[in-house]
Amino acid sequence: MILIPFGLIIWCLTQLGYFNNILKNQIGNTTNLYSAVLIISFFSFLIGLYFLVFVKEKQEDEFIAHIRLLSFQRATFLQFVYFLFAFIYMLIFKKEPSGDAGLEMFLILSILSFWLFYVLYFNISLFLIKKKANEEQR
């Protein structure tokens, strides 16, 4: 679980060039180290996200499986909407979403958006149904 925020923060800070000066002063040529930090941080974020996605509920029954399937469908739909808006944005403004590595970033985000939508939709649905069930119990 800790891999998700840790990996994301390190990856974002490295992309923003936060560690450039620190590493340059101490080591000199930092290209390889810079790439290694980027790769390790991004993959640790991805592994953490996959753990979060495939974690089992305490009681994994057919209703949970039904919500998982529904979340997959909604995540697919939302990813399609994301693609549509991102392409329209690129078409209108005739540039990639974020500077030089725009297309690369856009594709990375499209992969992540699917899993993020899935995790969010699944957990929110489950939270709401648990809340309603608890309210009825009282």
């Binding site: 509920e57 305490k58 009681q59 029954d61 057919e62 209703f63 949970i64 039904h66 489950l126 149904i129 648990k130 309603k132 069930a133 009825e136 119990q137």
Partner: peptide, 17 residues
């Protein structure tokens, strides 16, 4: 052998078992 929210969902018609 299911969770309580499953019973709630069945009773309220949110889920067809």
């Amino acid at each position: 052998a299911v969770s309580r929210q499953t019973i709630f969902a069945i009773e309220t018609g949110k889920y067809i078992p």
